[in-house]
């Protein structure tokens, strides 16, 4: 009895320490963002609320020149939204269509095409940085949302995810639908898409987060501030800070990290159930 009490105590101690380890950086970042730059400069990181919340965040969010030369954090957040939604919607649509063709049709090029999709796993962006940039530049897609989103949505993960799910749908459903006279398109729209609702939600949430957090590709693709996402903005402010000059505006950097973190974290926490499901399924 005593021993199990001890075990329970250790469990909670370890978990609380883990929670602090995970949470402290963000806590400190948020608290520090509510202080004046002078305070930060003089006293270092801050652990409690500093009263400059509105000042810092209004300037970052709404004032031109507050963080970047021209764009505001609001604009960057919007760009991130576009990237997050564009990426997740595009990915769900494209991979559902492809997975449907692969699982439910017998056609001659099925195997080779499946292997082409599989190959994308072997070719992450990181191994083809320069030529990918050249292709997009050649198509005149630098600094466009098309160039930003489209090349990202074709990788195999989503297709594999839906392929796996479609294969788990009982065969009799298709057979019943065929006896009921459903054409391929009808079956897809009337039966398969509604059946996939939770799967779509799960993968959508994962992909939104993945899209929002894209870094390398936007870094290569966007050279004008107009198209910066909030995550790219962070890189820029880092450069400004390290170049020095006047009193560094650390509170803005902190504010930016909070702004970049908040939306995807909220999505993950609010839709935790679907998120975990999507993560466990999609990584398989």
């Amino acid at each position: 009895m005593n021993q199990s009490l001890l075990r329970t105590l250790t469990n909670h101690t370890i978990l609380i320490l883990g929670t602090i380890f995970m949470g402290l950086p963000v806590w400190v970042a948020f608290m520090s963002s509510t202080h004046a730059p002078e305070t930060l400069f003089r006293e270092g990181l801050q652990f409690w609320y500093g009263g400059h919340f509105f000042e810092t965040y209004t300037e970052v969010l709404f004032v031109e020149g507050g963080v970047m030369k021209k764009v505001t954090a609001t604009k960057m957040l919007l760009n991130s939204m576009v990237l997050g939604f564009g990426f997740s919607i595009g990915k769900v649509v494209i991979s559902m269509l492809a997975a449907y063709a692969i699982v439910y049709f017998r056609f001659r090029l099925a195997m080779p095409l499946f292997w082409i999709i599989f190959m994308t796993l072997l070719l992450p962006l990181e191994v083809r940085i320069v030529p990918s940039y050249e292709v997009v530049a050649g198509l005149g897609l630098l600094n466009t949302f098309t160039g930003l989103i489209v090349p990202l949505i074709a990788s195999a993960t989503g297709t594999f995810f839906f392929r796996q799910f479609f294969k788990s749908v009982p065969e009799e459903i298709l057979e019943a639908a065929r006896l009921d006279g459903a054409s391929p398109l009808r079956f897809f729209i009337d039966i398969l898409v509604p059946l996939s609702k939770t799967m779509i939600a799960a993968i959508f949430i994962i992909m939104f987060v993945v899209g929002w957090n894209q870094y390398l590709w936007p870094l290569l693709m966007t050279t004008s501030e107009e198209h910066y996402t909030i995550v790219i903005g962070i890189k820029q402010i880092y450069q400004v800070l390290s170049e020095g000059g006047e009193l560094p505006q650390f509170q803005k950097a902190f504010a930016l990290t909070i702004l970049a973190t908040l939306p995807p974290v909220l999505v993950v926490v609010i839709f935790q159930h679907w998120f975990v499901k999507g993560l466990l399924e999609s990584e398989k």
Binding site: G18, M22, V209, Y215, K235, T261, P264, V265, V268, Q272
Partner: peptide
């Protein structure tokens, strides 16, 4: 313990 999944590496 799991929310940090959503934080982008550069952030």
């Amino acid at each position: 313990l799991m929310w940090a999944y959503a934080v982008a590496p550069p952030v």
